[in-house]
Design a protein around this nucleic acid. Structure first.
Length: 505
RNA sequence: CGCGGGGUGGAGCAGCGGCAGCUCGCGUGGCUCAUAACCACGAGGUCGCAGGUUCGAGUCCUGCCCCCGCAACCA
């Protein structure tokens, strides 16, 4: 049995406007994040990945799809065992702790994932062994030859060894040539087929630059990869079936999570939800997801995911985030000061969806004040006040929205979250311009009740439309706006985004 | 010749063959419904450097310089 953990998914909100333009058939929608390796606490890099996947999941639900949205943690391997030993913990006890922090990260960010898989779940381990047996035809025993430094307890590449003239610069001793018995996966056999699937966009990789990158790698062909480790060297892993001396190489087994979490092979969820619509990953692990993973699926005779979305990395004040620099940003710090939606907004709009981006408190402050408080928050506020002043708080009949959302939809289909929000903000600006042009206060003075009512109704309609478009991105804000302009006016206690005076530390 | 991404007004970015554009910041004006918010107008760029193709080049080609990743077993 597989462990299924229900995370705090929000109830799907019914689309009011977005769907009237097209007929959308209810479908199964499966979206995944990568499962981060638990050798450290979560930071904003993975937080961003959760947010991207969350937008896709929420949008799909909004369209009426049934959604499975998975995330989880990758918990085996030498590095984890080392970390655990440092803290004088058993590996499992250590990963229990860290895994929990990743789970909490999702809640903190209001991410609507509904399954959380750990590679140490018994279900995953059993299914991984089953997968191994299923693709046994593509697995063979071979020798891995490498340069090993006993000081580092690690292998080094040929080029690295050459660059150091055969002597480890840290430990001042020669690298040893070590042969190791490993199992290998016939990755080479599938190179051509993977290449074709990507070329034909059957397995669509966005952005295009990433697609080109992987096609370049595939052109020279992929070599078979070692997929096991001797148990006496790295004990913390899933045993290879029928060979007690070996455990599975972490990566090989971790990739399987995308199907074991659905209950591959027999569970109904697997049958209904695979292949995934979109798999969200970071640029560092593209070769595993665009090279190894599709080959594994082909070996299993399973269809490939429809789309792989590769995001970039975040720098902080232009510098790489690192513990030694002490500039690691924790999502909790941002949320504590600005709220969860402001945090979501920053990463979704101001980190380029197709490239690396930068975070700084100054920029967050500016964005919060200008775009969230002034433009959106104030548009809501002025509309609320006008309805109170001129209409005794009565919201009239609102006309359906007439905005063209083709650009917004196209942006989302291509995982251009930044562009999608640009489109929404076009409407926010448009609304503020509309108010200034129509001058409802002047109409009120002139006493033209009908005209006034239609202008205010338009404002409300525009805001409700914005709320719908915003739902996948800023679910709380969206709900608040919808709540204010329901059948009757229900103003908030304060404002949507209260202004801050002092910048954050 | 390892591979890839990038260098456009103070900042962040778009444009990828046809008058250099957007957001922030800055300046001026307008408005008063509003969270000193909103709206309009303006200043500010020889588009990394040097050649070339073209009637015309951020935009195509060649060479160079500078940043940032990746470089196969650490996941």
């Amino acid at each position: 049995m597989i462990h299924i953990h229900e995370a705090g998914g929000s109830s799907p909100s019914l689309p009011t406007i977005a769907t009237h333009s097209r007929l959308y058939l209810m479908a199964k929608y499966y979206v995944t994040t990568s499962i981060p390796y638990v050798n450290g606490d979560p930071h904003i890099g993975f937080a961003m990945e959760l947010l991207y996947a969350d937008v896709l999941a929420r949008r799909a639900r909004q369209q009426g799809d049934e959604v499975i949205f998975t995330t989880g943690t990758d918990e085996h391997g030498g590095k984890v065992a080392e970390k655990a030993a440092e803290q004088k913990l058993e590996p499992k006890a250590y990963t229990d702790q860290i895994s929990q922090r990743f789970r909490e990260l999702g809640k903190l960010l209001n991410v609507s994932s509904n399954r959380f898989i750990r590679t140490t779940d018994p279900g995953h381990e059993q299914r991984a062994q089953l997968i191994w047996k299923t693709i046994a035809n593509d697995i063979y025993k071979g020798k891995y030859v490498g340069w090993y430094c006993t000081g580092d307890e690690a292998f080094f590449t040929e080029t690295e060894v050459k660059a150091n003239n055969g002597i480890c610069p840290v430990h001042k001793r020669p690298y040893e040539k070590i042969e190791e018995e490993n199992y290998f996966f016939k990755l080479s056999k599938y190179t051509a087929a993977v290449n074709e699937a990507i070329t034909k966009d059957e397995y669509r990789i966005v952005p295009t630059t990433r697609r080109n990158e992987i096609l370049g790698m595939l052109k020279s062909g992929l070599e078979d990869i070692s997929i096991s480790r001797p148990k006496d060297k790295i004990g913390w892993g899933i045993p290879v079936p029928s060979d007690a001396t070996q455990v599975m190489y972490v990566w090989f087994e971790a990739l399987m999570n995308y199907i074991t979490v659905l209950g591959y092979p027999e569970h109904e969820d697997f049958k209904q939800y695979w292949p995934a619509q979109v798999q969200v990953i970071g640029k560092d692990i593209i070769r595993f997801h665009a090279g190894v993973w599709p080959a594994m699926l082909m070996s299993l005779k399973l269809p490939l995911p429809h789309q792989l979305y590769v995001h970039g990395f975040i720098t902080v004040d232009g510098k790489k985030m690192s513990k030694s620099l002490g500039n690691v940003i924790h999502p909790g710090d941002i949320i504590a000061k600005y709220g969860v939606d402001a945090c979501r907004y920053y990463f979704l709009r101001h980190v380029p969806s197709y490239e690396d981006g930068d975070f700084s408190w100054e920029r967050l402050e500016a964005v919060y004040n200008n775009e969230l408080a002034n433009e959106l928050g104030n548009a809501v506020q002025r509309t609320v006040v006008m309805i109170q002043k001129y209409e005794d708080g009565v919201v009239g009949v609102t006309p359906p929205a007439e905005h063209d959302i083709a650009q917004y939809e196209a942006a989302l289909a291509n995982c251009r979250f930044d562009r999608a929000l640009d489109e929404v903000w076009e409407q926010v600006r448009g609304l503020n311009q509309y108010i200034d042009e129509e001058k409802p206060w002047a109409i009120a003075k002139a006493g033209d009740k009908d005209h006034l009512r239609s202008v205010l109704a338009y404002q409300v309609s525009s805001l409700l439309n914005i709320a719908v478009l915003l739902e996948p991105f800023l679910p709380e804000t969206s709900a608040k706006i919808k709540g204010i302009f329901g059948d009757k006016l229900r103003p908030l206690e304060g404002t949507l985004f209260p202004k801050h005076d002092a910048p954050a530390a």
